[in-house]
Design a protein around this nucleic acid. Structure first.
Length: 560
RNA sequence: UGGCUCAUGGUGUAACUGGUAACACGUCUGGUUUUGGUCCAGAAGAGUCUAGGUUCGAGCCCUAGUGAGCCAACCA
């Protein structure tokens, strides 16, 4: 079901690798992918790219995709994260074949580790962390071998079993692969396979006190699950040699050898993509949790009102390559608007109200005017909006002084009230501080929208939205903006990224006036407050509260 | 005194086994429009990091530079 194929769109390099393998080493039914998050945080838009890549290939090649939790570090992981991850993937519209856990393979991994010891390819090192680290050397200088490196097999086996059986304390010893302390690749300098961690695991509870490291667990998990292609981000490129080394040492049957390949992670301007830093924002209460609408997390974007289709479309447009990149946030906004324009129910909401009285409109008259729910889609139908002599309009839609580029209301200037009549500004009333508190206008009774009269067909330059003063709903609106003030908040290693937080990223408007139809709004729907932006219902407890997803595109260069 | 990776308009991604750069976003024009939205039409903007080489011909191949990223957690 790949749209890519049908559109003849260009293949990315990972797709080419798969197709090459299909022509040589792999058959169609041997293809299998996986998405391997560590349950130590919430998924963000960067993970969405990875999800899109892996599950996208699954769809394209009709291959199964496993969801595998890389849960080898119980100190950082939790069931809360597991649940949020599953929820987010489903919300994005994907379903996995098997739900797997690296922890399900702990027995097998242990067995293989003993196998490596027996082959003389792994040993227990009694040195402390600091010593091991010192001995590893630096990239330009070879490391030194551990004095415990040449222990015999029986000693190693005995020690390793004691490690497993809780004879030692964390830090007393580790199991290391015996490879090459002078390798130019630091990861080949006798990497650690097991360490002792005294912490209950969220799944295996207290069954284990030794836990495999990422390098020892990941590739083997791929191998166990018959994963054909293991795609990860660029920083794991240097791990590949070790990934292959481990598998070559356990490989003993005619199983698929998984192939690790790396692509560039996603970066977006004015935000950060590090789980560690995102956690920091959450814990320091800079944001309202992992799902704060300003967060680049999947859950945050969901709360903000970005539909899954927009996220998928974004990942598609962003492409897959090996080059470091920073995507312009405007592309995400574009994808969001593109989807929402077709989906959103339109409503009129005045966010910063000022009173408007129509002098020649009958005092007691009240009309119900017809409005389209979505001009992009006839099937959304129509609604009725209450109209009378006294209204509210957006303060911003009236100006006493203006230039020829100004389309909105002013004294002596005509404008159309959306779905209603053409009015002309007459005069204003100000308070002592010179602030406009009320605008007076006159209307053309024959210009009613949709009436078909000659007057109603007149072209006026501007159209503005409004609210009936006698029939409206007060709502609360959360206007969000970018979380950071600079394009690359974590680009400068010397500065704390939090110093670049945008203090105006969240503006709450308590008293916005909405047409009364807003009472029917639903959590699952998307809304456009006309001429203002797209909004998502956040809460409908006593008072309706909406989150602004994104503003409408604004090409009016209101420059001054 | 190391290894690995990358280098195409402002941003991102293309260009099949070499045949003088395409698409999207952004920007700018104009048109339509009862949302300064949408939609439609169009424009500007790179000669592909640099220097050599191979070739009739190179963004694609080779060499050497330059620049950037990653690697020295008992994190993933």
């Amino acid at each position: 079901m790949s749209e890519n194929d049908s559109l003849g769109k260009n293949e990315n390099f990972l797709e080419q690798i798969i197709k090459d393998d299909l022509g040589n080493s792999h058959s169609q039914n041997q293809l299998r992918f996986r998405f391997p998050p560590e349950p130590n945080g919430y998924l963000h838009i960067g993970h969405a790219k990875s999800i899109y890549i892996n599950f996208g290939f699954g769809q394209q090649f009709s291959s199964p995709v496993n969801l595998r939790f890389d849960d080898t570090n119980p100190e950082k992981e939790s069931i809360e994260y597991i649940n949020s991850i599953k929820n987010d993937i489903r919300w994005l519209g994907y379903s996995w074949d098997k739900e797997c856990y690296a922890s399900d393979y702990f027995d097998q991994l242990y067995e293989w580790a003993e196998g490596l010891i027996k082959k003389g390819k792994a040993y227990v090192d009694d040195q402390n962390q600091e010593t091991i680290s010192d001995q590893r050397g630096i990239p330009t200088i070879p490391g030194k071998e551990s004095p415990f490196r040449d222990r015999d097999v029986d000693t190693n086996l005995d020690l390793f079993r004691k490690m497993k059986d809780n004879y030692f304390k964390p830090g007393d010893c580790v199991l290391r692969a015996k490879i090459d302390m002078s390798s130019p690749n630091m990861h080949m300098r006798d990497p650690i396979m097991y360490r002792i961690i005294d912490h209950e695991h969220h799944r295996t509870k207290d069954n284990w006190v030794i836990y495999p490291t990422y390098d020892w667990a990941h590739g083997q998990s791929d191998y166990i699950e018959n994963i054909s292609h293991s795609f990860c981000t660029l920083e794991f490129e240097v791990h590949r040699e070790l990934y292959d080394w481990f598998i070559s040492n356990i490989y003993d049957e005619k199983k698929i050898i998984p192939k690790q390949r790396e692509f560039a992670r996603l970066n977006i301007s004015y935000t950060i993509m590090s789980k560690r830093k995102l956690l920091e924002l959450v814990e320091s209460n800079e944001v309202d949790g992992w799902d704060d609408p300003r967060m680049p997390t999947i859950s945050g974007m969901r709360r903000r009102g970005i539909p899954p289709a927009a996220i998928i479309s974004f990942c598609e447009k962003v492409g897959v390559a090996k080059r470091e990149n920073i995507i312009d946030f405007a592309l995400l906004d574009y994808c969001t608007r593109e989807v929402l324009n077709k989906k959103a129910y339109r409503l009129m909401v005045v966010i910063d109200p000022v009173e408007l009285e129509i002098l020649n409109y009958p005092d007691e008259k009240n009309e119900l005017l017809k409005a389209e729910n979505n001009p992009e889609d006839e099937s959304y139908g129509h609604r009725e909006i209450s109209f009378s002599k006294n209204l509210y309009i957006e303060r911003d839609d009236f100006k006493e002084e203006f230039n020829r580029k100004y389309f909105r209301l002013s004294i002596g200037k005509e404008v159309r009230l959306k779905n209603a009549y053409i009015i002309k500004g007459e005069r204003v009333e100000k308070n002592d501080s010179g602030e406009i508190i009320k605008i007076y206008c006159t209307y053309d009774p024959k210009s009613k929208s949709g009436s078909g009269t000659e007057e109603s067909l007149r072209k006026v330059k501007g159209t503005i939205h409004w609210i009936d003063k006698n029939n409206y709903e007060k709502i609360s609106v959360n206007n969000y903006d970018r979380l950071f003030k600079v394009e690359a908040p974590d680009g400068n290693k010397d500065d704390d990224f939090k110093t670049y937080l945008n203090e105006n990223s969240f503006v709450q408007v308590k008293n916005a006036y909405a047409e009364s139809n807003i009472r029917d709004s639903k959590k699952e729907n998307y809304y456009q407050f006309q001429r203002n932006g797209y909004y998502k219902l956040e809460s409908n407890n006593k008072e309706l509260t909406f989150n602004r997803t994104v503003t409408l595109r604004d090409t009016w260069k209101s420059k001054s």
